[in-house]
């Protein structure tokens, strides 16, 4: 009798715990990552391509990927006001709900001309433009207004010291050296052929 009572109590407790967990669990099961992050840019670079990976979206449903100034965890988040109007992409969904896409993120004022932008820490925002040094890539499905499936990844910019050379010296020097040696060898062989 006592054992049955205990079992009932444990079952009841588990039920309550399960319900509590179910209630506490967020509706969204999606995840988003941005690579690279921080996004490395040269001093004058205003856009950069990043790879956005997502999981957990609905299968075969249109995907919305946007650059936002505010986190979706902020109660006042509003996609119309807080995400760039010109900077989003809408890749086709696939059968698994897990995929990736290349997104061009902007450094500077919002390309749509609104009074905010994503900046590196040392950047100076134009007058009247609010500077955000942390921006967010938000991903959702079905509709850009869908806040039930969305997830995000914060990202920042990191400015490199200077322009990255198109072909670094560590590659150029051996290549030039090899070509010079080959050229010399060919020249010597041709002279030998002519003299014979």
């Amino acid at each position: 009798m006592k054992a049955r009572l205990m079992m009932k109590s444990v079952a009841g407790l588990l039920l309550v715990m399960g319900t509590a967990v179910a209630i506490a669990a967020p509706a969204s099961a999606s995840t988003t990552t941005v690579t690279p992050n921080p996004v490395t840019v040269t001093p004058n670079q205003t856009t950069a391509n990043v790879t956005v990976n997502w999981t957990g979206l609905a299968a075969n449903t249109l995907v919305f990927v946007d650059v936002c100034k505010k986190s979706i965890t902020d109660a006042s988040f509003d996609v119309a006001s807080d995400c760039g109007a010109y900077s989003g992409i809408t890749p086709n969904g696939n059968g698994s709900g897990t995929n990736s896409a290349v997104l061009e993120v902007f450094r500077g004022q919002d390309p749509a001309g609104e009074s905010w932008g994503c900046f590196a820490a040392g950047d100076t925002a134009p007058a009247g433009v609010t500077k955000y040094t942390t921006c967010y890539v938000r991903v959702t499905d079905n509709s850009v207004l869908n806040n039930d499936s969305d997830s995000e990844q914060a990202f920042t910019f990191s400015v490199s010291s200077g322009d990255v050379p198109e072909a670094p010296l560590t590659i150029l020097l051996p290549v030039v050296g090899t070509l010079a040696a080959l050229g010399g060898f060919v020249l010597i062989r041709r002279r030998q052929t002519v003299s014979v």
Partner: peptide
């Protein structure tokens, strides 16, 4: 080209 807001703009 994909028809994104940016490429349309």
């Amino acid at each position: 080209k994909s028809a994104t807001a940016g490429t349309i703009a």
